[in-house]
């Protein structure tokens, strides 16, 4: 073996180890969360975690249903705000806007993704929350406030993935439709949407994953009451907020119950990612 060959082998080995360590970190985190979180779930029974209504960790009441429902409401609200806006942006950028406008708008939208979530939360507290409190009533800190802010936060994800989806539609579809005398909007509705559907579904799912996982902004504006919200104006606590709010001082079974919260969150997000991969794989076929 020459010195050069040995060099190559060493470098390959080194790179392999670095690459493998990234994967093993993921595995270690997964194992850690599950080993910390699952024992207590089985001790009290998963049903009490998943369907329990009361969260009083000091009294051994570990009902996570309000947080599961809370995450669901806030995420659904974020999608209601973010998906129509995001799709509208993607349609404008791919179908209507000139290349020059696109070159200006797209980086600006991507910049939205770079704003720290605490800044979104801050804007939520000083602008959105008072606006809701004064005009619609309630404490302001609410499902609605969290949905609005999260809706904006998922925009970059929804927009960039649905732009990819629209751009993946062969331009000949569009030409064929226009050449038959269709308007641009008819073309979008009747040809582009069906052709880009799986990509749009992937955009929605990834946006959903981003909304479920977001913590900081939500803690600042959602009110964090551990009860199922009765209206969009009621405060709400999500799974992520539950962990972040209490991990600082929790110990013993309380701490384990927070890990159990993490397990549930982990499973939901994994399921969403697998769903997203599956739909985009189906698109490629």
């Amino acid at each position: 073996m020459t010195r050069l060959e040995r060099n190559d082998r060493l470098i390959r080995l080194g790179l392999l180890m670095i690459a493998f360590s990234a994967v093993s970190i993921l595995i270690v985190i997964t194992l850690f969360i599950f080993s910390e979180g699952t024992p207590i779930m089985f001790k009290y029974g998963p049903g009490r975690f998943l369907f329990g209504l009361d969260w009083y960790p000091s009294e051994k009441a570990f009902g996570l249903l309000p947080m599961i429902v809370g995450s669901f409401f806030v995420t659904a609200g974020a999608l209601l705000v973010g998906v129509p806006m995001g799709l509208a942006c993607a349609i404008v950028l791919t179908q209507f806007a000139s290349k020059r406008v696109g070159r200006i708008l797209k980086p600006v939208i991507e910049l939205l993704a770079g704003i720290p979530s605490v800044v979104y939360g801050f804007i939520g507290i000083v602008v959105i929350v008072p606006l809701i409190r004064e005009n619609l009533g309630g404490p302001g800190l609410s499902v609605l406030a969290a949905s609005l802010v999260l809706g904006v936060m998922i925009l970059p994800t929804v927009i960039s993935i649905s732009i990819d989806a629209f751009q993946a539609v062969p331009p000949t579809y569009r030409e064929g439709s226009i050449a038959l005398g269709a308007t641009v909007w008819q073309t979008i509705r009747m040809v582009m949407f069906p052709a880009a559907r799986s990509g749009i579904v992937a955009a929605v799912i990834l946006g959903m994953g981003r909304a479920i996982g977001e913590t900081m902004a939500v803690i600042m504006i959602a009110g964090n009451a551990a009860a199922i919200p009765g209206s969009p104006l009621a405060p709400v606590r999500t799974l992520t907020s539950n962990i972040a709010l209490e991990m600082g001082y929790a110990s013993g079974e309380h701490r384990e119950a927070l890990f159990a919260t993490g397990v549930i969150l982990f499973v939901i997000i994994m399921a969403l990612n697998i769903l997203a991969n599956w739909t985009s794989a189906r698109r490629k076929r």
Binding site: T172, Y173, G176, L180, M190
Partner: peptide
Amino acid sequence: GMVFQRPNPFPISVADNVTYGLRVH
């Protein structure tokens, strides 16, 4: 009307392709 270099039927059914122009108009 125009026929293109590469056949470009829409990714929908045969019938929907033919009636596309009718629906559009």
